[in-house]
Design a protein around this nucleic acid. Sequence first.
RNA 1: GGCGCCUUGGCCGAGUGGUUAGGCACAGGUCUGCAAAACCUGGUACACCGGUUCGACUCCGGUAGGCGCCUCCA
Length: 430
Amino acid sequence: MRLYNTLTRGLAELPDPPGPIRMYFCGPTVYQRAHIGNARPFVLGMWLRDWLRFRGYTATLVHNITDVNDKIYDAAPGRSAELAAEATEWYLQDTGDLGLGMPDELPKATDAVPEIVDFIGKLVESGHAYPVEGDVYFRVAGDSGYGRLSGQRPDQVEEQEPNPLKEDPRDFALWKATKPGEDTSWDSPWGKGRPGWHIECSAMAEAAFGPSFEIHGGGLDLVFPHHENELAQSSALGHEFAHVWTHNGMLEFGGEKMSKSLGNDVSIRNVVDTWGREAVLLFFLGTHWRKPIPFSDEVLVQAQAQVDAFRNFFLDERPGDEEGQAILYDELIPILDDDFNTPEALAVFHAWRDREEWASLRWALGLFGLGSVAEIAEAPDEVVQLAERRREARSAKDFGEADRLRGEIDAAGWEVRDVAEDPGFRLVRK
RNA sequence: GGCGCCUUGGCCGAGUGGUUAGGCACAGGUCUGCAAAACCUGGUACACCGGUUCGACUCCGGUAGGCGCCUCCA
């Protein structure tokens, strides 16, 4: 199994199974409904974990939630903790509704404060960090390897807004002293405060996995400074940290990155409700994980059309009858083992559909949370009766009545199709 | 200013130094009371300019355009 590694800018070969593959993926900051772009690393992480398990690895996925942060304070003055808790629930619901199950652990930053404080303490002791007036900053100048993940040259990094407490403008906060208006805080050797953004991931990842693990994932926009800083913190303690770094491409909307701050985001909730979870998954499946995806109604329409095509296929193949069909693992494994090329896998699925390899297709779709397209919905009795009355009207050549009944069936949420075999019609949920 | 990525037929989107990607849409056809579904047929695309090569969409250089990061961001 090979995956593109941001750190080396090349493909990394994972150790052979069954060795553990421990994956830490960065999750959202919770202060509003998560947008569809946030779903990409979630979906990728789940798919990858499940694929690795299928391939014989012992794979675990830890997906963190950032529940203390300036955005949250700003969004809910005086009740930031309540908002964070509420938005965390939204996130769990919305990602849960994608039907992929859940990561093995979903740690929250606020639950990891002791580990974070301990981590910072070690950085201070070893001279990699310094406390100033209740804040603690990481000393970038002391890190000769700084920039190796993102390719940034420390001397070229644009200056941020001046902060007189910092020794160097590039230093970043590990611990922030409580400011007026902030309604949550924790005790620390440096006074009351709360964690900086980057340290939580180093602390939580190492709490879950120890000082080194196999894969760290997240959005491409996190490479710098977030992941660079995580790497710097852990490296400062002599830890390898992540062996392979995976960064998924951004969703774009109207030619720009979709993001909350640009205000062009569409919620996971909204997209799933509008297009259905299968279409959303197929939308992600159709583009390689490292590439940007232009988000548009047209693309979702195309995804939905493919979902319908697979669903229609299983309608005709009488699901459950898989005698004599071997599953064609060999056609899929090389594709997904090579940097997890899901678009090419999708092409294989279409080929299997053409060749009526329904056992393989059902198995493969199931791997990606799309097993439901192979399930046939049973129409309720009243709809079946409408269809029977329509069949009778048709045989009596009363097509006006037949069309009227078709309208009733449609209004009940079903589509009736005439077929040659018994009972002469087929009912499909719309 | 620095770091990095991208440009494929109407749309989405893989891939390869020389052989059909695939899907969606569209058109025609078969079937059908009509429709839907299904099936058949229909387009040799790879930003531009050079170079390397027997041969480049695929390698190298440049040009144009677009995107991401360098500030919270999946």
